[in-house]
Computed example of a mutant assay.
Amino acid sequence: MRKTTVLISGASIAGPALAYWLQHYGFAVTVVERAPELRPGGQAIDFKGATQRTVLERMGIWDEIQRRQTGKTDMVITDAQGRELAEISGDFTGGDVEILRGDLAAILYERTAADCEYLFGDSVTALRETGTGVEVEFENAPARTFDLVVGCDGIHSRVRALTFGPEADYVKHMGYYYCTAGAAGWGHDPEAPAQRNRSAAYNEPGRLAVRGGNKAAHLYMFAADRLEYDRRDEASQRRVLAQAFAGAGGPVPAMMSELGDLDSFYLDSLGMVRMKGGYSRGRVALVGDSAYGNTMGGFGTGLAVVGAYVLAGELALAGGDHAAAFARYDEMMKRYAKIAGQSNAGRFLAPRTARGMRMRNWFLGSWLFDLMLKYSDNAANDVDLKDYQALVAAA
């Protein structure tokens, strides 16, 4: 019997997670990734709640994530003289377990590489749906036809643009930009036991600068309308950051002098994806940040892993009826993905006024912050997971 062929665009987290489940159910999977190889390091990402843990346990990777987790990082907010004003607990920012994005990607890749085809250093350039499949053109590889295509290629998704329309129609700019640079995990040693870390954060209205405890990692955030720059030109991005923090006080001048020695530089806007009509069209679907991304919103990785589990399970149950599977996936994930649209990390971390900064600092020590934590925990479990493996076996 001929296997259903699926092309997945993106090999960060959502793509390999979806590949894992699809190959498990007997689909023929190809993953295309623009980067020339699996990308190591990256930001620390986290999982929260029983729902996300259940999916990871069913994938058989929960113990490995536990083994390779980073230590949580408490963010201490200081004034220009270094005096502590407030603290954002790592228990809030780091979820139940935190791991470097690159480490999680490696775990997923190791469990899919033998049974799935990976095309590194390539990308999708055109999609044309026919009555029986999707004709796909690549930047480098010869054109091929697949039964289904899934965009797992992030908030700037090429698959979404080709299928649904321009990014500006679906990604809302949240009025902020962020930048990360330096050692991933704030100096975490993957060979050492996970331990508690501390970072120092300095605020001015509309600006945030965070330095890891070992000074080898920086995080910046600043308020700005849409900026024009080349996302592939690091030099121009470094100039954007320097302009945004010109004249800043406290530790910022020293941090700017350190920045030239830090690699892994990444600058992007805070964006929120809003797919009003659902996450699929014809034979193409979206999973992860391409479908329900909210930059630094705190739920992105968990949503991606749950979304991959649901989409693959619904496709397996549908027995070839992708339209029915996509409809059920849309219905289930719309409710769960609402949690990704509830926050703007920029307004919280870099308030635009001095008064806003004072209110945020007060909030962090109040009972209202505890209430928000409780809501966050409840929202992370707000979906009824089917046991797709059992259902498929019984079908």
Rank of each mutant, 00 (worst) to 15 (best):
residue 6 V to G: 07
residue 9 S to D: 02
residue 9 S to E: 10
residue 14 A to Y: 01
residue 23 Q to P: 05
residue 27 F to G: 08
residue 30 T to E: 14
residue 32 V to C: 08
residue 33 E to I: 04
residue 40 P to A: 09
residue 41 G to T: 07
residue 48 K to V: 02
residue 49 G to D: 12
residue 52 Q to V: 13
residue 54 T to Y: 03
residue 60 G to D: 08
residue 61 I to Q: 05
residue 71 G to W: 09
residue 91 D to Q: 10
residue 93 T to K: 00
residue 94 G to D: 02
residue 94 G to R: 00
residue 98 E to F: 00
residue 100 L to I: 15
residue 103 D to N: 10
residue 104 L to K: 06
residue 104 L to S: 01
residue 112 T to N: 03
residue 124 V to W: 01
residue 125 T to Y: 13
residue 127 L to S: 08
residue 134 V to E: 14
residue 139 E to P: 03
residue 148 L to H: 11
residue 163 T to Q: 14
residue 169 D to T: 09
residue 174 M to L: 15
residue 175 G to F: 10
residue 177 Y to E: 04
residue 181 A to D: 09
residue 182 G to F: 05
residue 183 A to M: 08
residue 184 A to Q: 01
residue 185 G to V: 15
residue 186 W to N: 10
residue 187 G to C: 15
residue 192 A to Q: 06
residue 194 A to P: 15
residue 197 N to T: 06
residue 200 A to G: 01
residue 207 R to L: 11
residue 210 V to L: 07
residue 211 R to W: 04
residue 211 R to P: 03
residue 216 A to L: 02
residue 219 L to T: 07
residue 221 M to R: 05
residue 227 L to E: 11
residue 231 R to C: 13
residue 234 E to R: 11
residue 235 A to T: 13
residue 239 R to I: 13
residue 239 R to Q: 13
residue 241 L to E: 00
residue 242 A to Q: 15
residue 245 F to N: 06
residue 251 P to G: 06
residue 258 E to Y: 04
residue 259 L to W: 04
residue 275 M to P: 13
residue 275 M to A: 14
residue 283 R to F: 01
residue 283 R to I: 04
residue 303 L to D: 12
residue 308 A to N: 06
residue 314 E to I: 08
residue 322 H to P: 04
residue 325 A to V: 12
residue 328 R to S: 15
residue 331 E to H: 12
residue 333 M to T: 12
residue 336 Y to T: 11
residue 341 G to L: 13
residue 345 A to S: 14
residue 351 P to W: 09
residue 357 M to V: 13
residue 357 M to D: 01
residue 357 M to Y: 03
residue 359 M to H: 09
residue 364 L to S: 02
residue 365 G to Y: 06
residue 366 S to W: 03
residue 371 L to G: 09
residue 378 N to G: 10
residue 379 A to Q: 10
residue 379 A to C: 00
residue 386 K to P: 12
residue 388 Y to P: 04
residue 388 Y to K: 05
